[in-house]
Design a protein around this nucleic acid. Structure first.
Ligand SMILES: [Mn+2]
Ligand SMILES: [Mn+2]
Ligand SMILES: [Zn+2]
Ligand SMILES: [Zn+2]
Lengths: 146, 146
DNA sequence: TTCAGCAATAGGAGTTATTCCTATCTTATG
DNA sequence: CATAAGATAGGAATAACTCCTATTGCTGAA
């Protein structure tokens, strides 16, 4: 029927190297087009579709981790180890939570479902300092001139 | 500057009632267009944009809960109480986890971030029985004719 | 009851993020 | 070098929403 997996040789091209380097430098968890914006400064001719393709390739390669947060854009993480995140409900920013993942959770929950459990995701939701500040400013200006 | 909130009166229209009833009947956590498909059988002239708009309105109204699972489509839940879910990594199906949410988690994590924490989300990831079955069938057919 | 006015709808256009396609270029290897 | 697999730029296509507009439906005051 179907052939055995073709095992193509992945190449560490300039584009891929730069994407990886810039992702490492950013402490945030950028979306594809945030990566595009910074990478463009070093490789002005790179295309957005290359960024998408390379990020996907690097994920399969195990050099980058895709974060599926909330419901909107894909975010990418240079740190491929298991860890948790906080997400801002307003602006979508994502940051790390410095805490060890609860490995026992999956064991503990295994009997509650007939799914074959392969992992879990824990996400804190909140308002980031910047969005909080903006919110307070707006509130203040409303009080001043109602 | 901006006017005070206009406080419009929401109406429980036929469309909204049917959407709510069908959502209640479905045990799953359907996406907007899965809702559209079933509602269409009772209201053949309803439009997809009405389904989207009404689901959003019902969420604001507190009668429906929007689930932001994984990264793709929006799923909707008739049960607005806090609870956890399992998601199939293959097909995206979402089911409830019969367990009380860990309310202490948010307290415990509060010091780990400068975000103002407002909630959390815990999601088990796995393979649903149906996808597991398919996977095994494929494996078998490969072994038979390699 | 009538009717003014706000609320809601159908249908379709527009948007956003992502994926797909293709002609062309690059690299590794014999 | 010749060749072929891998990768790229640029743009078209798609999926899932989101917005717009003309029309219709309700409702509460007269
Ligand atoms: Mn991270
Ligand atoms: Mn649920
Ligand atoms: Zn924010
Ligand atoms: Zn499945």
């Amino acid at each position: 029927m179907s052939d055995p997996p073709p095992k193509r040789r992945l190449r560490m091209t300039r584009q891929r190297r730069v994407i990886l380097e810039e992702l490492k430098k950013l402490k945030a968890h950028p979306t594809a087009d945030e990566v595009y914006e910074v990478v463009r400064e070093r490789l002005p001719r790179i295309s957005l579709s290359t960024v998408y393709r390379d990020l996907e390739t690097l994920c399969e390669w195990g050099k980058v981790r895709l974060l599926e947060v909330g419901c909107a854009k894909k975010h990418f993480d240079y740190d491929t180890r298991d860890h948790y995140h906080v997400r801002c409900a307003r602006c979508g920013r994502v940051e790390n939570l410095p805490v060890e993942p609860f490995t026992y959770l999956e064991q503990a929950f295994r009997d509650l479902t007939d799914y074959e459990v392969t992992g879990h995701k824990l996400e804190l939701i909140g308002i980031c300092p910047e969005c909080k500040r903006k919110e307070e400013e707006e509130k203040k200006s409303k009080e001043e001139a109602p």
